[in-house]
Design a protein around this nucleic acid. Structure first.
Length: 1113
RNA sequence: GCUGAAGUGGUGGAAUUGGUAGACACGCUGGACUUAAAAUCCAGUGAGCAGUAAUGCUCGUAUGGGUUCAAGUCCCAUCUUCAGUACCA
């Protein structure tokens, strides 16, 4: 029987589908293993051979794990919302759902052809309402959450509201917008509902805010930075402006530190972790406030908590001493009237614990100002209880009972304090700096042109210039501004800031090298220590004070920190960088000018897209404030629209939907006409971005058809996380960061059991194409030689000439060769030949018309494109050889190879083996179809082992020692390789085994049966077929992996390499039982050794038993 | 600029804790089978030198140093390529 890959592969693919061979169960005694590929987007172009590389690797691993007795979850699905389908819809009017459906069908067919062991019963599609229902519900969950820094996790918004009710927001340790207004509990309660909503938005994990975006009015959409070229849209070349837009954002910044910390416990590639670390961009420094010098508003006399004090409070609350911690553990559980707070300010004093309802203060004794405290607290009507550290540590319960006693006999204080009006604030510029040690080097400040203070502080004299500059900047995209480092531009505002330490006046400039979105959008410029500030100062003739000891700054800024001594800096002078840094922060805090701060580069992620083909938000607007639709009414299904373009008045495409209003009473989406009704509200017009659906899909696979929850608790607890995740490195800072963020959030809310979704991740390398080139001659007339008419006539006579690769070494060779050819063949005469020029151009040829030996099928090439129909070919020995070059696989380079073609010509098993054989999984490597004959031959040889001619011939005899050795050597290597994801080497191992067994003419069942199992993860179709030919009636996919037995590999002798001065000269077969001394003796006595030494006496003999002998001398 | 990865025959790539460099495959050359081609099978194939030959010698893992009995592998410096990232204060 011949090996017929077409019939065999079809047969088994059908078998697997019909028997649901790879359906994973959520209940099993076996240990679980979850293997996942990164979510594919089903593009219209289908797969090329580069795409399935990772899928093949993960499939091999999944199949191997099944053989190893694991319950394997290996699902697949589609990230099916996205731009290409929408773009196609705009062009053709075809609904994206339809296009997507068709693309998925193509994808599925291609995937099935390769024989993957996916559990298709769990397929998910992000564009399916049954799926995005849960994406919407997670969004609602995010909206209803805030980040509590005390517990370091997300909590329900109701907790925050109750805190506001009780104590306002002065002390709450939450992640929020910068500069949230402070209020007391009374103020909170008095706020109108709308105002409360506005405040809460500043804390919610997803929130509406005004964001700077690249807006293209013509396209009616926001563009990403890389979609803009020179201030114009990449598509269409329309103008793009910076615009503020109200959009949904995700407060991923709340998770910056945890996203950083989490990297330590996951087994992901270092480069990937590095780029996430880089992206999060933690930097440690200080916030410093500069006041703007103004002749205005009177000073407030009110004593307010400074930034520094607030920060200290928060800090203190986290860093309790041991005794404090002990006591707090007891006190914190008290509820109601006996509820305690820690580190609370009473008047101007910071107290350890206070129970406000019972006006009782609990403090540790031994404070410096104890007398003043006692007097003040007594005056305010507080009871005071004091304990020593020792008392608490020795018997905390006794202390608690004493406290309880006090509480019983106390009463609440009557508060008649009214919240005071806030004074009109002076303008203040906050900056973040990583170098507070250089603060005495500040000679000016720069604001981003978009900075909100610009318009407020600009002097009338400078107004015109400043406005013009702001307008110019608005036209440039952020990327433009960043790319253009050379042009220094900026304008003086006319205003001055006060240096917080020296009190000197400092010019305030605006400049587009400062980015509005980073830090505070303002910098304190230290020209002597920062190159950009230096360049700016030089350009505008601003003084550059030198604050570094013994450093020359006449040419460039001094950026090095190490070894630098600060000078001319008041109290910082003479200190090293490290010491100055600490002292400067200390002083900033002491004088309430600033405070130490950790800043992250990571920005909150914009979550709104002005697109049609994405998840609709479950949001409607009442009085302009967003309202969540109750989860019970989800999904909010994407409405039908006539056009997929923005509306005429610039609203997103959903603005075209006639039925897109929320009936809050009927709890359903209704026609826009009903918007007149009081209880009907407009729905959100934006849709969610591509990463919404892909940020949690791995959890859905665990329980993909659940309609009650996004996955049941049981299934989540069973599968927990992805054990092996394979995909490209291009997702490093997109999908993989957002997905980690959502997972941590879901974990905080108790919705998933682990806070990292993928234990191990592997980046597969790209498969590159091997392009083929032909060399075409293009003739030009040298200038002014002929009239235009004559020139055209000459050129018209010359056909396209295409020259084989090895006929020339240089451009000159090429020109001479082509000219001679043209003259010889009468296309050109000798005279005119001097007046024309021949230029070589490299033209891509379709790789399918080139064979393994780089020979072009000339006829196929001629028919490929009409311009080559009449081309003349200069051949070498009757053959046209193409040039080769490795490039990215792409349609435009005609080097794309379709896996379907490989499957029908060589088979899926051959494709799988070859993709693995190409090289290490993680590395980029070029594809060359010719190489596939190697694995094809291997499969045929493997097949032949089981046959004698056309007849199946299996011997039941006991295998020989040698045969067993081959088998077990193979088992060992293959097992090691798969565990190490070194799939390329195990293909070689199979080849070696089959070559050796063929040589021995081995057809023993006891060898061939395990061999079939070994290859089955790699080449599952042929393995199944051989397995059934061996008389088995069930699938090979779950039989036990052959057990490795070391005793078959034990050798009695070793062929020792004998080296002289490290160079191997010959080998010597010696028993492994010999001792070092015996080996040395035998080797030295050998005649070949004596010949090598040629009378010299060895100085030293190194013997490593079982390895090598080295003779020195 | 910064960060990371990698440089081994004509090509893709092997090489365990430092221990026989180039496994396995492609390609190429020669041969067998065939009218011929394809397919299949066999042999050779890092470079150079010597020899009719068996064989022997020299050089060889980007470059230059170093450690070691022994270096593709470890250390230092340099060069090149690829990937990511960038007025990040």
């Amino acid at each position: 029987m011949q090996y017929n890959h077409l019939a065999i592969e079809k047969k088994w693919q059908k078998f697997w589908a019909e028997n649901q061979t790879f359906k994973a169960s959520n209940e099993s005694d076996k240990p679980k293993y979850y293997v996942l590929d990164m979510f594919p987007y089903p593009s219209g172009a289908g797969l090329h051979v580069g795409h399935p590389l990772g899928y093949i690797a993960s499939d091999i691993y999944a199949r191997y794990k099944r053989h190893k007795g694991f319950n394997v979850l290996h699902p697949q699905g589609y990230d099916s919302f996205g731009l290409p389908a929408e773009q196609y819809a705009i062009q053709t009017g075809q609904h994206p759902a339809k296009t997507t459906e068709a693309n998925i069908a193509t994808y599925r067919k291609q995937l099935d052809n390769i024989g993957f062991s996916f559990d298709w019963t769990r397929e998910v599609r992000t564009s399916n309402p049954a799926y995005y229902k849960w994406t919407q519900s997670i969004f609602i969950e995010l909206f209803n959450s805030w980040y509590h820094k005390d517990t370091d996790k997300a909590e329900d918004i109701s907790i925050l509201i109750s805190i506001f009710k009780k104590e306002g927001n002065r002390l709450v340790n939450a992640v929020s917008e910068e500069g949230v207004e402070l209020f007391s509990s009374e103020e909170w309660k008095a706020f109108p509902k709308k105002k409360q909503e506005e405040i809460l938005l500043q804390y919610r994990l997803t929130y509406l805010s005004d964001t700077h975006v690249n807006w293209c009015p013509v396209l009616g959409t926001v563009l990403a930075n890389d979609e803009i070229i020179n201030g114009l849209s990449e598509r269409g070349g329309h103008p793009v402006v910076q615009k503020k837009m109200t959009q949904w954002s995700m407060r991923i910044s709340a998770y910056a530190q945890r996203l950083l910390d989490g990297l330590e416990k996951i087994d992901w590639p270092q480069p990937l972790k590095d780029s996430q670390t880089n992206w999060i961009g933690r930097s440690q420094g200080a916030m410093v406030s500069f006041e703007v010098n103004e002749v205005s508003s009177k000073e407030s006399t009110e004593v307010k908590l400074s930034y520094k004090e607030l920060e200290t409070l928060k800090e203190l609350r986290l860093n309790l001493s041991k005794a404090e911690g002990l006591l707090w553990d007891e006190l914190k559980h008290k509820k109601g009237a006996a509820k305690f707070r820690k580190k609370y300010t009473v008047g101007s004093f910071l107290v350890d614990y206070v129970c406000l309802a019972k006006n009782t203060i609990v403090e540790f004794s031994g404070k410096e100002d104890e007398t003043e405290r006692t007097t003040f607290f007594a005056k305010e009507g507080f009871n005071i209880v004091r304990f020593s550290n020792e008392e608490v540590i020795e018997n905390v319960l006794q202390v608690v009972s004493k406290i309880n006693n006090t509480l019983q006999f106390s009463s609440a204080i009557k508060s008649d304090k009214k919240p005071e009006k806030k004074p009109t604030k002076k303008h203040q510029i906050d900056v973040f700096t990583t170098r507070p040690d250089t603060i005495f080097g500040v000679s000016f400040m720069t604001l981003a042109p978009e900075h909100e203070l610009v318009s407020k502080i600009v002097t009338p004299a400078q107004k015109k210039e400043v406005n013009a500059y702001v307008r110019t900047t608005a036209k440039r995209s952020e990327r433009d501004r960043m790319a253009d480092v050379k042009t220094i531009s900026g304008v003086f505002t006319g205003a001055y800031a006060i240096h917080p330490f020296t009190g000197e006046k400092v010019q305030i400039w605006i400049g587009d090298y400062v980015l509005a979105n980073y830090g505070t959008g303002a910098v304190m410029a230290v020209p002597c220590g920062d190159q950009r500030d230096y360049d700016f100062a030089k350009h505008f003739d601003i003084p550059i004070p030198n604050i570094f000891k013994g450093v020359d700054i006449s040419e460039a800024a001094h950026v090095d920190k190490a070894g630098t001594i600060i000078a001319n800096s008041d109290f910082l002078s003479g200190l090293t960088y490290q010491k100055a840094l600490k002292l400067s922060i200390f002083e900033l805090e002491k004088r309430a000018i600033g405070y130490g701060k950790i800043n992250y580069r990571l920005r909150d992620a914009v979550f709104s897209r002005q697109r049609y083909w994405g998840e609709p938000f479950p949001v409607y607007y009442k009085d302009g404030m967003p309202q969540m639709i109750d989860a019970a009414h989800l999904p909010i299904v994407l409405p039908t629209v006539e056009k997929y373009l923005p509306t005429e008045d610039g609203k997103p495409p959903l603005g075209n939907a006639p039925e897109w209003a929320w009936d809050s009473r009927g709890k359903k989406v209704v026609s826009n006409e009903k918007l007149k009704n009081k209880t009907v509200y407009p729905l959100e017009l934006n849709t969610m971005p591509g990463w919404a659906g892909s940020s949690w899909y791995f959890n859905r696979y665990m329980d993909a058809s659940n309609s009650e929850e996004f996955a049941s608790k049981e299934s989540l607890d069973y599968w927990k996380e992805v054990d092996l995740y394979i995909g490209g490195s291009e997702h490093a800072t997109g999908h993989l960061l957002y997905a980690r963020f959502w997972q941590k959030f879901l974990f905080d809310k108790g919705m998933v059991p682990v806070d990292e979704f993928a234990k191990k991740l592997i980046n597969q390398g790209m498969i590159l194409g091997t392009s083929a080139f032909v060399y075409k001659a293009t003739p030009f007339i040298k200038s002014d030689c002929f009239t235009a008419h004559a020139s055209e006539e000459i050129l018209n006579k010359i056909p396209a000439v295409i020259v084989s690769k090895n006929l020339f070494n240089s451009e000159e060779d090429f020109e001479v060769l082509v000219k001679n050819y043209l003259i010889d063949n009468g296309f050109l005469n000798q005279d005119t030949s001097d007046r024309i020029m021949i230029v070589k151009s490299d033209v891509h040829a379709d790789v399918s018309s080139v064979n393994a030996s780089d020979e072009l099928d000339v006829e196929a090439f001629k028919n490929w494109r009409t311009e080559f129909k009449t081309a003349e070919f200069i051949l070498e020995e009757g053959i046209y050889k193409v040039g080769r070059e490795v490039e990215k696989m792409s349609k435009s380079k005609y080097n794309v190879v379709n896996p379907d073609a490989i499957c029908s010509a060589h088979g899926a098993d051959a494709l799988r083996l070859f993709e693995m054989f190409l090289g290490p999984l993680e590395q980029a490597k070029p594809w060359k179809t010719s190489g596939i004959s190697g694995v094809s031959t291997f499969l045929k040889k493997l097949w032949k082992l089981y046959f004698n001619g056309d007849v199946l011939a299996i011997s039941e005899d006991e295998p020989t020692k040698e045969e067993l050795k081959i088998l077990h050597k193979t088992i060992k290597k293959v097992e090691e390789d798969i565990e190490n994801f070194s799939f390329n080497t195990s293909v070689s191992t199979f080849m070696i085994a089959v070559n050796e067994l063929t040589l021995l003419k081995c057809n023993k069942r006891l060898i061939l049966e395990p061999l079939a199992i070994l290859v089955s993860p790699y080449a599952p179709h042929i393995a199944e077929e051989l397995w059934s030919l061996l008389g088995k009636t069930t699938s090979i996919s779950t039989v036990d992996f052959p057990a490795f037995e070391a005793n078959h590999l034990v050798e009695s002798t070793k062929n020792y390499p004998i080296s002289f001065n490290g160079k191997m000269r010959f080998t010597l077969e010696l028993s492994l039982d010999l001792s070092k001394e015996e080996i040395e003796k035998t080797v030295l006595e050998d005649e070949k050794t004596i010949a090598q030494l040629d009378g010299r006496i060895p100085k030293k003999v190194i013997v490593v038993p079982g390895k090598i002998v080295n003779i020195v001398g």
